[in-house]
Design a protein around this nucleic acid. Structure first.
Lengths: 353, 353
DNA sequence: TCAAGCCTTTGAATCGATTCAAAATATGGA
DNA sequence: TCCATATTTTGAATCGATTCAAAGGCTTGA
């Protein structure tokens, strides 16, 4: 920096070769005669040339070799939230294999959103948490780079998206508890909406809830119906997907006349908070209360007891989205992947009454 | 894509204005007469022009508005490892505030290392885990961008670095246990070296251990010496900073003739694995065994019991490194920040014999 | 009517590389 | 020695924008 930055042209001139040859020395060394190559490299070293500047190359090549992952969340979300992290880890694995870089992009504040999306140097975008992120999608589309949304329940069929079958997953979770013999089951829902904390009446689910929790709910209900349990008989406690609201919800659930013997949590995050609350209250999992999560984040495998959950195929999701972007082969229509029930130690038959 | 990509020049021609004016329409709209601006925008829309391409702008401006974080680890490390995540979260917070993007760079395989460092589109680098990453430092230096290493114990004083006072931190941890009355203390060390698993003799520490664990060890020893306990009296079990080796180490520690009443773990990660092992073995923390970690990762605050630890000033580290890079104001010499003892529920006085 | 001053627009240079057809040089065979 | 072929090197075009001195228009006041 500072004074005269050395560029390829300077090296070429100093070494007495054409710029084309100088370029080849760095990007296709095999094509240059050894003697010349050595000389150019020597001159480059003397001049303090640090190799071809990526910006120049980029302009020509057009390819960055990096993908952007954007979410309507602060940057910290990517390193904090268990679901995001599971996904990022999976994406990281795929990118590592292909030598692709990752740039994380926050689309948090409306004002800087456009700038952030437009100035990210990437070959394409993976969009997390698209519900409520219409503007994010719109901007990304404007940028005219390949992108793929990770979340179904987007109305617009023209948006390339990969999602999971939340209804089937919810049903699998509920069925598991029902097969174990539970009949007093409560639901811990998740969402962003302030109005949906505390007890939630079933008829508010469809109009007010976001797609993901709504679908999971319908999955739960479907399995419950198979066992003759009407949705009205199953209390729903809404949380904001964070610790305080989950603890409040648990408090409410267990201070009622007949507390549940099993809990359907809509995410592992919430389930693990619930597990902590139960432990602090001296209630044993799974002896006193069975608990099943959703997502299949790594923490669920190392909690004590280890959490039974419905796992997302993170690796598959990552593989598909990254290759879709890298090869610009976006799925024609929405794809929904299957979830897998992972039975661990947090669920068991209820105590005999 | 596909056919003819629309560029600014096309829009300019179609709208019948010069390229300079067209450029101004997008980057400095206020300087263009409204009538012309509207016309150009309309034409741009009709042609499907998606706004100025970042690559062209970049070449001219030279600034990317993003910083790279590199580690000699796979990409997954950034989203997986508690320490890395704590740091990334802190870095994310700072970057969010200034609208800076983050690109994560893996310097895992020697072969692709150079490429990854050279092709990352960033204004500077933060290097994690620099021990053993001399090559990473060398390459980054070659790239001639500002960079800062996060780890002390680098010999080369010309490398800008921010670190923490591991000796003082270790001493604080050990002193805490000693003040509670513990005298049978064991150490769980961390490292990459296969040779340092299982029981480690004190005289092997200096020649064989990396700087960070070595310094922490010396901190422990210093405090122990203050209480008249010679280093030979304190068993050291080496781990590879992962689950299996930690469990093996715990097994060894507690199958000995007189098991420790307290454990000094060199990281929270290892401490939490140890905590799980103790829980599975039915040993109560802190009643049967006291446990203190190192680092101050968020998980330490939510474990059951919550882990006493020596916390790194992640926010401060992040703030300093990001501003150093963004303002190209690198520290003249190595800085060492202080750690803070955070007493929580995993440490207590030993049972009376 | 003219000069001064302000606001817009132009056109060419620039950023730092890669690419490729064509030219120059080297190698080999007859 | 000469021609055909293979290997290197050259030089100019290109990628897609931004920048800025200079030119052009328009308004205003004398």
């Amino acid at each position: 920096m500072g004074k005269g930055h050395v560029r390829l042209a300077d090296v070429a001139k100093a070494a007495g070769v054409s710029q084309g040859t100088a370029s080849n020395v760095f990007s296709r060394p095999d094509v240059v005669r050894e003697e010349v190559r050595e000389r150019v490299l020597k001159v480059a070293r003397e001049l303090g040339y640090g190799g071809p500047d990526i910006k120049g190359r980029l302009l020509r090549a057009g390819r960055v070799n990096a993908i952007g992952v954007a979410a309507v969340e602060p940057l910290t979300y990517f390193f904090d939230d268990p679901w995001a992290r599971s996904l990022m880890t999976a994406i990281g694995e795929v990118c590592d294999a292909s030598g692709t870089g990752i740039a994380v992009v926050s689309a948090m504040n409306e004002e800087r959103l456009a700038w952030n999306i437009n100035s990210a140097l990437v070959d394409g975008f993976i969009l997390l948490c698209v519900e409520g992120g219409e503007r994010l999608v719109e901007l990304t589309r404007q940028r005219q780079l390949p992108f793929i949304a990770l979340a179904l329940g987007i109305e617009d069929e023209t948006i390339p998206a990969i999602g999971i079958d939340n209804v089937a997953g919810g049903a699998a979770a509920a069925r598991h508890l029902l097969e174990l013999g539970h009949r007093d089951i409560a639901i811990l829902s998740i969402g962003d909406v302030d109005g949906l904390v505390g007890m939630v009446a079933p008829e508010r689910v469809d109009p007010e809830m976001e797609a993901t929790p709504r679908d999971r709910m319908h999955g739960y209900w479907r399995a419950l119906a198979e066992y003759g349990i009407p949705r009205e008989a199953v209390p729903i406690q809404g949380t904001l997907h964070d610790r305080p609201s989950t603890l409040t919800a648990m408090e409410a659930l267990f201070s009622s006349a007949n507390p549940p013997t099993a809990i359907l949590a809509m995410s592992d995050k919430v389930a693990l908070f619930a597990m902590q609350w139960l432990a602090e209250r001296g209630l044993k999992v799974p002896e006193d209360v069975s608990l099943i999560g959703f997502d299949g984040v790594p923490e669920a495998a190392t909690s004590l007891p280890r959490l039974t959950t419905v796992a997302q195929p993170f690796a598959e999701i990552a593989r598909r989205s990254v290759t879709a972007i890298l090869e610009n082969a976006l799925p024609e229509n929405h794809e929904a992947l299957d979830l897998e029930l992972v039975v661990r130690d947090s669920t068991a038959a209820p105590r005999l009454p």
